[in-house]
Computed example of a mutant assay.
Amino acid sequence: MTTDTFRVGLMFSSTGPYSSVAEPMLNGAMLAISEINGEGAVRLDPVVVNPGGDLSRYASLSSQLLSSGIRQVVGCYTSSSRKEVIPAFEKHDGMLWYPSHYEGFESSDNVVYTGAAPNQHILPLIDYLMSSYGDRAFCVGSNYIWAWENNRILREVVVARAGTVLAERYLPVGETDFDKTIEAILAAQPNFVFSSLIGVSGYSFIRRLREACVARGIDQPAVMPIASCNLNEPDLVDIGGDAVAGHISSSVYFSSLQTPESRAFVSAYAAAYPDKPWASADAEASYIAVKLLAAAMREARSDEIGAVRSALANQRLAAPQGEVLVDAETMHLYLTPRIGRSRDDATFEVIREEPSAIRPDPYLVRFSATDAWRSAASRLRVVS
């Protein structure tokens, strides 16, 4: 039987202000391609482009890939880059596989979302923070849609539960001057700090806040932990030093999971990239995207998006995080929410998790700020 070969695009900013996240995403995609090509049922020929974190380059690179005949592209990390390229995919009848947690409230026939939707990351995090630390929040984020929308969701839930969002601060992507923001946090004394900063901005903020708290004799992880939906293992390595431990992260995957699939993924990733063996949720989402894409193209015997979409609706995958399956209605995935606490060794201890994958709810249509968090939180189990 002849093996079908398909060209696929990979578009990640492996250089630039958030390269520490985007590079593992590219690595996860390439690892999946290597495994798929080794199996021989279908062969993928990757074409890699690097926007370098420059938002203005995403649309032109997408058009170049699609104009060359490529129909399937795995890529983008930030929501601003995703929104920048969707018109090109709609124009050229291509499909973007978006492998990142995101803020939701979006649907496109030309996008498959393999990262977490808001009900799979921010809602479990809010409940954990308010039940464990208190109801006074301070929000800090990079100045684009990811932070705006996550803070909006957080604000609505916190206020509905009689809590308070003390302040919201937004800074440019790549900003590292946080003196005034940290002064405001220390003056406000929140129960927790919700950070949606990305890349070097997040690393600098975490280090600076820890330093300021240590100087004042404040046990920051205990009294005002930093919590995030986008903090992962590569981020912890870049934070470094004495500021690594004690942060709270909501994710669907941590590399410390001890399932056979997770151990195999972490081992294969470390072998393929020995200089940076930091598997993460973002790397896993890219890995999942490529695996599902290959399975759909193998079944469809085509890379045409209608045929791939039809085949995709039947796909399930034993992923590193556990079984994932496609929600044909939304083109998002059933994923397993988890809460982790960072440790000194730049890994996460899983402290809460869902017993199984939950249905994506990108528009939160099944969610009420006053009631739905209770039913969602009741399924979370504490990991001892």
Results as ranks from 00 to 15, higher is better:
A227K: 00
D109N: 11
R7Q: 13
Y287H: 14
V365Y: 06
L10A: 12
E211P: 05
S262P: 05
H121Q: 14
A184K: 09
V237W: 10
R381A: 13
P51L: 05
R298H: 15
I36K: 04
S108Y: 08
A300L: 07
G53Y: 08
G28L: 04
R169P: 00
S204T: 15
G9Q: 08
P118G: 00
R381D: 03
A307H: 12
D93A: 12
A88Q: 15
E323H: 00
S20V: 11
V158W: 01
R359Q: 15
T78E: 05
Q258T: 12
L96N: 05
V48R: 04
Y98M: 02
V85I: 15
D109Y: 04
Y77H: 13
D361L: 01
A281M: 13
E23M: 04
R210V: 04
E149I: 13
N37V: 11
I33G: 03
A117G: 11
W148S: 06
E183M: 03
Y203A: 07
F192T: 02
E353K: 13
K83I: 03
K291D: 01
M95C: 14
F254E: 12
W97I: 02
S60D: 14
P124C: 09
H332N: 15
E329G: 01
S63K: 13
N150T: 11
I351Y: 05
M224E: 11
F254N: 06
H247P: 03
K83L: 15
L325V: 03
Q120K: 07
E168D: 07
M331T: 06
P17F: 09
G28F: 02
P234W: 09
F265L: 07
Y253L: 05
D109S: 14
A243R: 08
E284M: 12
H121G: 10
T259N: 07
S255V: 05
T181V: 15
S68D: 09
D327G: 10
C229P: 12
I358N: 02
D135H: 12
G38W: 04
D303E: 11
T176M: 13
R57V: 03
G75F: 10
T181F: 00
A357P: 01
Q321K: 06
I70S: 02
S67T: 12
I126R: 00
A372D: 13
H121V: 04
E323L: 10
N50A: 06
A272D: 00
L317M: 04
N27I: 03
N37T: 04
P337M: 06
A285L: 02
Y253S: 02
L65Q: 14
S250M: 04
G217D: 00
Q220V: 12
G202D: 08
